[in-house]
């Protein structure tokens, strides 16, 4: 445990490993640049962005944020259980994390359906072009994350090994990255314009 803690203090060993943190850094920079482009575009026609923002369902966005955060919480608990070699508890918490992700996808599905039904598709205006590109790209990350969590669930159920512990920490870091991206995506799309 102490060795792990000492290792994590090293630049080369952030929680989950350096490769996942390189990926996280690149992803948040990419999404950040796209969100800044959204902000810059909004200055050309602030009224359009305000009216378009009001067409989004803030309640659904808020509920989805809570689902993702709660899912992230369960994943963080799962990592703690894995470190303590408590395989059944870890597997149970990964399953809860997966459920949170599933609920996010279901709510997003309802939201997309409503937008398409009202004609607010990707070509409707600049705001909705950003809305669809950013949320769909984020959704792809969530779906990939859910695939990773599914794999971790079946792996951890068999018992905890050093490799499985590392895999869980790396998978959890990817899952939390989806939270990190959404935490800025939610306010810039649903709240501030």
């Amino acid at each position: 445990m102490e060795a792990t803690s000492m290792q994590q203090k090293s630049f080369l060993y952030p929680p989950g490993g350096i490769m996942i943190w390189i990926l996280i850094t690149l992803e948040i920079i990419t999404f950040g640049a796209a969100m800044i482009a959204l902000g810059v575009s909004s200055r050309e026609n602030p009224e359009l962005f305000h009216i378009s923002r009001l067409k989004l369902n803030t309640l659904m966005g808020t509920v989805n944020t809570v689902f993702l955060l709660t899912s992230g919480y369960f994943m963080a608990v799962a990592v703690q259980h894995v470190k303590q070699h408590m395989a059944p508890e870890a597997a149970k918490n990964i399953l809860f994390a997966l459920l949170g992700g599933l609920l996010f996808v279901v709510v997003k599905g309802f939201e997309y359906y409503a937008k398409i039904e009202h004609g607010y598709t990707i070509g409707y205006n600049t705001f909705f072009t950003f809305y669809w590109l950013l949320t769909l790209f984020h959704l792809i990350h969530v779906l990939v994350g859910m695939g990773i969590l599914t794999g971790l669930y079946f792996s951890v159920r068999k018992g905890i090994t050093e490799t499985r512990q590392e895999n869980t920490e790396t998978g959890a870091a990817f899952w939390h990255m989806c939270d990190l991206i959404w935490l800025f995506l939610f306010p810039v799309l649903y709240l501030i314009f």
Partner: peptide, 15 residues
């Protein structure tokens, strides 16, 4: 999320 869920508070200062 980064410091508590991702345990960044136990990581190197760079991160």
């Amino acid at each position: 999320v980064a410091f508590e869920f991702m345990e960044l508070r136990s990581a190197h200062a760079f991160w």
